[in-house]
């Protein structure tokens, strides 16, 4: 088997996802509505209510709107990761996943290609959001826009792998309401996306500990530091670890000898 086949297939899956995204441009606008509502309405309202002290990576007092931008970047990745996991379940039913899985390539590579394609689309949406945020006065240093790219890709892959693992193993999560209630909301609210962990600790140490263990918190912090041109090695390490664990679970789920394909029949 020629190694070029791997890249050809990866390129095809990426191109297909981009083409679909281009053909459904309305998706971009609907995907941006959610973080923009948080950014322009929720954050504006809370600006006066919440005081934020100087915490890394910030070197001065910041507005609440500035604080939640990385969290909202994470929110885009999180929603997209879950949505594409649901599309995988749907794809499998309509058959295009079947077609993909019968390609003469290792299954892990085919699933990675699917994951990378979904992440690529998410990253475009995050940049669109960052551009709008900049127009409303929350701009990052220019190097932050470059450094955040690998952080967004890694976080997107990790959250996509979580979605993939869920799509393969948890049959109850096939409707979006279920995913919202049991995955997206807990991930998002029990994280540092909306408020720093020290704020959380003021009300409950337990909640703070749960937030600190949440991989989404680390994804958000990795993005936050990258946006200011800094590397948060600890957060990146936790995100890599979570990516490895979720990928292993996804691969197990899509193993033809095990996992949900078999259980479903």
């Amino acid at each position: 088997m020629r190694p070029g086949i791997w890249m050809t297939a990866l390129g095809a899956v990426l191109a297909r996802e981009m083409l679909r995204f281009w053909q459904q441009r309305a998706r971009l606008f609907s995907a941006l509505v959610r973080p923009l509502v948080w950014f322009l309405v929720f954050a504006a309202g809370f600006r006066a209510a919440l005081g934020l002290s100087i915490i890394p990576p910030y070197q001065t007092y910041i507005t609440y709107q500035t604080y939640i931008v990385p969290g909202l970047c994470g929110m885009i990745l999180l929603f997209n990761g879950m949505q594409s996991s649901l599309s995988l379940v749907h794809d499998r039913e309509t058959g295009s996943m079947r077609l993909l899985l019968t390609a003469p390539l290792p299954r892990w590579w085919l699933l990675f290609a699917k994951l990378a394609a979904g992440t690529g689309v998410s990253v475009i949406q995050v940049y669109a959001f960052l551009a709008i945020a900049a127009c409303f006065g929350v701009a990052m240093p220019w190097q932050g826009y470059l450094m955040v790219l690998p952080a967004l890709m890694l976080a997107g892959l990790m959250l996509g792998a979580l979605g993939l693992a869920l799509s393969a193993t948890v049959t109850q999560l096939e409707n979006f309401a279920g995913v919202m209630n049991f995955v997206i909301f807990p991930c998002f609210f029990l994280s540092s996306a909306l408020y720093p962990l020290w704020r959380m600790a003021e009300s409950s140490d337990l909640l703070r500990d749960i937030c600190a263990a949440n991989p989404f918190t680390h994804a958000v912090e990795m993005i936050r530091f990258a946006l200011y041109g800094q590397v948060n090695g600890t957060a990146a390490g936790w995100v890599c670890l979570a990516f490895a664990v979720f990928s292993a679970a996804a691969l197990r789920g899509y193993d033809p000898a095990r996992g949900m394909i078999r259980r479903r029949g």
Partner: peptide, 21 residues
């Protein structure tokens, strides 16, 4: 059916061809 309904006939064929290398 396992076609991508949003892609053209040619795009569907080229996508599959790429999966075969």
């Amino acid at each position: 059916q396992t076609l991508d309904l949003d892609l053209t006939v040619m795009q569907n064929l080229r996508y599959f061809a790429a999966l075969q290398g």
